[in-house]
Write a protein that binds this DNA or RNA. Structure first.
Length: 275
DNA sequence: GGCCAGGTATGGT
DNA sequence: ACCATACATGGC
């Protein structure tokens, strides 16, 4: 897509390719907030403010290169959407979430975030993650480092509000390092999935989310409660989420990850309540 | 007060 | 390989 870089500013002028509300609120990411009419984005130790400007946005940040990659600005979505829209079920979701982009998020932050997301709601997921930032990182704003998280006991994670996921966090930090996660990137999707599922607190759904939002594998289809509801409205109902995921991957192939995100956002916005 | 939230672990057949 | 259940917490 088209964008310009000035000093400490990225200029994006096409909302059909970039809509900050759709990108951040579509459920793929938790490190953001809204203040008046601007969005704040704070992955890892980075920071950007996104404000409306003309037909698009100004992204104000000292880390322009980081956010060009984070927002995957060099990928064009017009062909992806065109291809997906050939399937009737995708037409309205694409129209609705027109400016969605799949982010390229940090593996470690994504893993921790989606372990916390299990059987939880987005508001509380963000609260727990913000508690971790506030209490563990040096500046109280950055996502904690691996070492900072490794130094915590289970009780601490409970105090942060993690509930019964506290034990998962404590364990998973002793199962993989940042370096391990990076090394996994060379594995084919099937083996990567098995590797992730072997980790504490990681089942099929969390593994699929980490693969999509961290490893940017698009031949996966995370199935949560919303996708399951959607599936059972349009197809012959199944209660086996693995089977649902397989069927949807069969239908959408290498564009599964994109399809999932449009469908999830549409489903959650219409049937559910956005906080 | 029961149900639900971007489910997973565990123990039973 | 499939199923049932427990699991913290907070909003509605």
């Amino acid at each position: 897509m088209l964008y310009e870089v000035d000093k400490d500013c990225i200029l994006v002028q096409n909302r059909s390719e970039f809509n900050i509300e759709h990108i951040l609120e579509c459920g793929q990411v938790f490190c953001y907030g809204k203040e008046d009419d601007k969005y704040l984005v704070f992955p890892q130790d980075k920071y950007a403010e996104v404000i409306e400007y003309k037909d698009g946005y100004k992204l104000l940040t000292k880390d322009t290169d980081y956010f060009i990659d984070f927002f995957d600005l060099n990928t064009s979505y017009s062909k992806i959407k065109e291809e997906l829209a050939k399937q009737e079920i995708m037409k309205k979701p694409i129209e609705f979430g027109y400016g969605i982009r799949i982010l390229k998020q940090d593996l470690f932050e994504t893993l921790i975030s989606f372990i916390i997301s299990a059987n939880n709601n987005i508001k509380r997921i963000k609260l727990i993650l913000n508690n971790l930032r506030k209490n563990l990182s040096k500046d109280g704003k950055s996502f904690p480092t691996y070492e900072e998280l490794l130094s915590c006991n289970e009780e601490f994670f409970e105090k942060m509000g993690a509930g019964y996921r506290a034990g998962y966090l404590y364990k998973v930090l002793r199962q993989v390092t940042r370096e391990d996660l990076s090394a996994f990137a060379s594995l084919p999707t099937k083996e990567l999935r098995q590797k992730l599922i072997s980790l504490s607190g990681v089942g099929p759904k969390v593994a699929d989310c980490v693969m999509l939002f961290g490893y940017n594998r698009f031949d996966v289809f995370p199935v949560d409660t919303w996708i399951q509801k959607m599936y059972n409205m349009f197809f012959s109902p199944l209660d086996n989420r693995e089977k649902i995921s397989q069927n949807l991957i069969e239908q959408f192939g290498s564009l599964s990850g994109y399809a999932q995100q449009y469908l999830f956002y549409y489903q959650r916005s219409y049937l559910g309540k956005l906080d």
